[in-house]
């Protein structure tokens, strides 16, 4: 065991690096999601009504929309109000509007969503539901770029999962390799244990403990390094001018626990795979 110190260190460092990369990704992802959902708070759906819709129908329509899943509030924007704001926005080209005999703009509802239910699918679902109302002619949910961004984000998340799997496997592999080398280096000792009546489980137990300890140490070290890096970055952001845009946070406790747990599992699994091959006489 003494001669194997270097081997242990290399294993733990490798696991620590894997954990560092994976948890850095998770950290980024968690904070990016926070930022995204604060952006999405601005998501509104505009529902334009058909021309022949009478004002008397508005309250009933409004109630129908309010009852839909995920709706926070609904504001009526009459065509007169819409025209007013258009005129304000285009005050320099006011002459365009002078020739209009009739207001061509439709009445509309502005629908805002509850922040917690916001994901892209839900927004689309709600928009479809609103569009299916007979009085509604058209639905617009502005920030299409947010939709595109969301799908890139989803892609990014899938890549993240794949990365987790790759690094998990790398950790399993390195532990398996270490345990295999340890096992060979203790070959004589194991032979003696067999001769005095030790069972396979008795012989394997210390290797499992070692594999899981390597996983645990690697996991803790990886998270600790990430925390140091995070602390430096967070301090820099706080002092910078973009501080108001972000409210960054470290990994929540349950994620840290989960990551270290996975790391221990990787140690266990590496050991299992390695010993499955080598213990049988």
């Amino acid at each position: 065991m003494r001669n194997n110190k270097l081997l242990h260190i290399i294993t733990i460092v490798t696991i620590a690096l894997s954990i560092l990369i994976v948890s850095a990704f998770i950290l980024f992802f968690i904070n990016a999601s926070d930022v995204m959902s604060s952006w999405k708070k601005g998501v509104r759906i505009m529902a334009y009504l058909k021309n022949n819709t009478h004002e008397k129908e508005f309250p009933e329509l409004k109630n129908k929309i309010i009852d839909m899943y995920g709706v926070q509030d609904v504001t009526i924007v009459t065509k007169e109000e819409a025209m007013e704001s258009l005129k304000n926005q285009m005050s320099r080209q006011a002459s365009i509007f002078e020739n209009l005999r009739e207001n061509p703009l439709p009445d509309a509802f502005e629908v805002r969503m509850i922040a917690s239910t916001q994901n892209w699918e839900k927004i689309e679902d709600l928009a479809k539901n609103i569009e299916s109302l007979s009085a509604v002619s058209d639905v617009e949910y502005g920030q299409r770029w947010l939709g595109r961004f969301t799908s890139i984000f989803t892609l990014f998340r899938l890549a993240g999962y794949a990365m987790c799997v790759v690094f998990f496997m790398a950790s399993v592999f390195i532990v398996a390799n270490t345990i295999r080398l340890l096992f060979y280096s203790r070959h004589d000792e194991i032979e003696i244990m067999r001769l005095v009546g030790a069972t396979d489980n008795f012989i394997k137990a210390p290797f499992y403990i070692e594999g899981m300890l390597q996983g645990a140490f690697g996991g803790v070290a990886g998270i600790f390094i990430l925390f140091l890096i995070f602390a430096v970055i967070a301090a820099n952001i706080e002092q910078s001018s973009i501080a108001y845009m972000f409210d960054i946070r470290f990994l929540p406790m349950e994620v840290i626990t989960g990551v270290i747990f996975c790391s221990i599992i990787a140690g266990w699994l590496g050991c299992f795979l390695s010993l499955k091959q080598y213990v049988k006489n």
Binding site: I192, G197, T199
Partner: peptide
């Protein structure tokens, strides 16, 4: 085999 071997005490020339 492990349980069976507990019936024996084994001594080797090279001690083991």
């Amino acid at each position: 085999i492990p349980y069976f071997r507990r019936m024996f005490g084994i001594i080797f020339q090279d001690y083991k």
